[in-house]
């Protein structure tokens, strides 16, 4: 793999992605068979520096690093409004002095991971920066799609929800488009800026239109701050318009799969019955594949140093 840092999907070539996927498949099998893979890489130090609260992503990265035999240190720095710009650079310099091989970074500001990568010597892996990108989430989503659909090109993939603020959506748009899939975006106009249409993507304000004939429906989490911040009038109206229920799902292809990056708001963006339907919902698979995928990415970033 060429890339030193993975801040956004465009840091990766198609070949890089194929390489990540094939290694991820290998780790997925090992994980399923509970085969330990420690020490294959030799010793490496991974610091997970999370400026934003996270349980699932942090656990996934921590587990992935540890399974590879790395020394993994979590640093959770609760974000506060005073922590900006200069403080972040100071933190970067402090961490750099600890000589890690890898920094896994999450921050509530778009561009924070990039800023950090400019200040440190080691590799930086973006685990979500503001509304910008969350590349490993997109990679694991795509690998999950590939598993279920047995192909990774020519699919109709509908992404529904708060597109405007979603880093998951941006990474997925970049990745899925790279492989010639048709990406549709669904959401209310105030959470789905017209600029996405100008970028050549299909946009829909009526979910029924957006999911018609889709192979994959990717639901996004509606953040609490959007509910409180006046972006939508109420949970019930949001569910009525953009919540995935059986009626809307029935418009998609009969074998369409349902994805969600978690954690879900049942009854807001997704009907609990659909979330629990194992024929449709691949939400648990996404989590399982997530660990293997992150192992592969960490492996390739550490390994490139030789």
């Amino acid at each position: 793999m060429q890339a030193k840092h993975i801040i956004q999907i465009d840091d990766l070539s198609r070949n890089d992605i194929e390489e990540i996927f094939s290694l991820a498949e290998y780790y997925l099998q090992l994980n399923k068979n509970k085969v330990e893979q420690k020490y294959c890489l030799g010793s490496f130090t991974q610091i997970n520096v999370f400026f934003e609260n996270s349980t699932r992503t942090l656990a996934s990265f921590e587990l992935a690093g540890k399974k590879l035999g790395g020394v993994v240190q979590d640093i959770q720095i609760a974000t506060s409004s005073i922590q900006k710009g200069e403080t972040l650079i100071d933190t970067a310099l402090t961490l750099n002095a600890m000589r890690p091989d890898l920094l896994v970074v999450r921050h509530s500001s778009s561009g924070a991971a990039n800023l950090l990568s400019e200040k440190v010597n080691c590799s930086v892996l973006n685990a979500g920066d503001g509304s910008h990108e969350h590349p490993t989430q997109a990679l694991l989503d795509f690998l999950t799609i590939k598993h279920r659909k047995k192909k990774k090109e020519g699919l109709i993939i509908s992404i529904c929800g708060d597109i405007s603020h979603s880093r998951v959506a941006r990474s997925n748009i970049a990745l899925l488009s790279k492989f010639n899939n048709q990406v549709r975006l669904i959401g209310p106009s105030n959470l789905l800026p017209a600029s996405f249409r100008e970028m050549g993507l299909e946009t829909y304000n009526r979910m029924e239109d957006g999911v018609r004939g889709a192979d994959v429906i990717m639901m996004l989490r509606l953040q609490k701050e959007r509910m409180k911040g006046g972006f939508i009038p109420s949970r019930r109206e949001y569910f009525n318009r953009f919540g995935l229920d059986n009626q809307k799902l029935s418009l998609a292809k009969s074998d369409a799969i349902v994805m969600h990056p978690g954690p879900m708001n049942r009854g807001v963006e997704i009907d609990g019955i659909i979330a629990d339907d194992l024929n449709r919902s691949v939400i648990q698979e996404q989590v399982e594949i997530g660990v293997a995928l992150r192992m592969a990415v960490l492996h390739l970033l550490v390994d490139r140093k030789g």
């Binding site: 006046g230 939508i232 009038p233 109420s234 009525n240």
Partner: peptide, 9 residues
């Protein structure tokens, strides 16, 4: 003038 109503409903 603060919070929008359920315009859809």
């Amino acid at each position: 003038g603060e919070k929008m109503t359920e315009i859809g409903f």
